[in-house]
């Protein structure tokens, strides 16, 4: 009788201990899970910072070197430069008015002409014509590019209207052109620079 009672007591005590143990286990597991989750969020934001930092270094290679400026002085072409590139702070690059031939890539059906002032924003004004028709009249050019739709193939003329000081200085980029170049130019007042835009050479 006494032995039975003792055995039952032992059983009850051991089951109580198990319950307590499993409760602690659950709490510990939860703690571990929380810590893991917290660490993962910490790692994720750290990795994101690193990835964005590397991407920023890789993507922001748009600064203009003195070698680039020298090249532009020679032929007026800035290879691979971005639209809106400002070459010099004042209108003193000394570029001569030039005409350019622009060849488009094979997959380009419609064209856009981006035009901006690559030197000082001094109130230069131009008029843009495509195949003799005016497509934008008296456009005040700024550092921020201005976009115009142009037909392909066509002959685009940029006519100088007003000089804000130091000559009418402007850059032109036609996205989708072979070489992805920027054309830096100076427009004489009353006369035009011509851009002969051709389709892909077959």
């Amino acid at each position: 009788m006494n032995n039975n009672y003792r055995d039952k007591n032992r059983q009850n005590l051991s089951s109580l201990g198990r319950t307590r143990n499993s409760g602690e286990d659950l709490a510990n597991k939860l703690k571990v899970k929380r810590a893991k989750s917290k660490n993962i969020h910490r790692t994720a934001i750290g990795l994101t910072a690193l990835v964005i930092f590397c991407a920023a270094i890789f993507l922001n290679n748009s600064s203009v070197s003195t070698a680039d400026v020298t090249n532009v002085k020679e032929n007026g072409i800035g290879k691979g430069m971005k639209a809106g590139t400002v070459l010099v702070a004042a209108d003193d690059l000394g570029l001569q008015a030039k005409d350019f031939n622009v060849e488009m890539k094979s997959n380009v059906k419609t064209g856009r002409l981006l035009i901006w002032d690559y030197a000082a924003e001094d109130g230069d004004v131009v008029t843009v014509k495509a195949d003799g028709k005016v497509i934008a009249e008296n456009v005040g050019i700024l550092h921020e590019p201005f976009s115009l739709d142009i037909p392909i193939p066509s002959v685009v003329e940029v006519v100088g209207i007003k000089d804000g000081g130091g000559g009418i200085t402007y850059g032109v980029k036609i996205p989708g052109a072979v070489g992805n170049s920027v054309f830096f130019n100076a427009a004489p007042i009353g006369s035009a620079n011509k851009y002969t835009i051709t389709g892909p050479v077959k």
Binding site: I45, G46, A49, I52, E144, S147
Partner: peptide, 23 residues
Amino acid sequence: EVPVSNGMDAVLAMFSFFIYLAV
């Protein structure tokens, strides 16, 4: 239809680094 200057990635990199330090 004009490109915007993309300096925002550098700004975002700096922001994420500061937030990482706080975390």
